[in-house]
Amino acid sequence: MHIDWWTLALQTVNVLVLLWILSRFFFRPVMDIVAKRQAEANKLLSDAAATRDQATAARAAAEKAIADVTADRDRAIAEAHRAAETEKTEMLAQSSREVARLHSEASAAIARDRATSAKAVVAHARELSVDIARRLLGRLPPTVSFVAFLDGLCREVKALSAESRADLAADAGDAIEIVTAAPLSAEDTDRVRDALHQALGAQPALEFRVEPALIAGIELRSRGTIVRNNWRADLERIGEELDRDERRA
């Protein structure tokens, strides 16, 4: 066996050339691309980590914002509750005041109505009583009623103090006015004159006059004294008493 040194040298050069070619066009590019991919992967990992950190921070910020919004909402709700409560209280107070005012107004109106009604009732009752009295009186003979009223008038005159009767008689300069509801007959006129002269204990002049408003009865009028005994006076007195009772009520 012999060794061809030229072949040995050429093969050595060939292997070195192949080493250069593969190193230049295969190993280094492949190692570079692997390293580049590794760097890209590391960059992606770091970017992903950074993105994850950003996402975590964003989530924390969002949670904080949600918490703030929730707190604001709760605060607003509480304020709204307080405002509503205050407004409700104020409205209730205002309503109470309004109700009280309306109640008082209604009470006053009712009182006024009641007073008006009572007055109307009294007036109506007065008119009714006058009407009733007039009708009842119409059933009696005029003499009967007149005698009864004349007796009453004489009792009242007698019931006056002596001083008053003396004053009444002293006013005779001016005739004493005798007012009746209906014209008197001559007989009744004489009867009145006799009865009054007897009751007064004097004989003053008498002047007779008719006023249908008296309804029934007789009334004595002098300059300083009036003695009534007729239904109109009775009815007026009754009305005044009713008014007093109502005012007291």
Partner: peptide, 26 residues
């Protein structure tokens, strides 16, 4: 003076093929 043997020629062909493949790959 340099004899080119079959071995060297085959190696050249092999190197050419590998170089071509490496270049295409890169």
């Amino acid at each position: 003076p340099v004899p080119i043997t079959e071995t060297v020629a085959a190696t050249w062909c092999m190197i050419a093929a590998l170089a071509l493949a490496a270049i295409l790959t890169s």
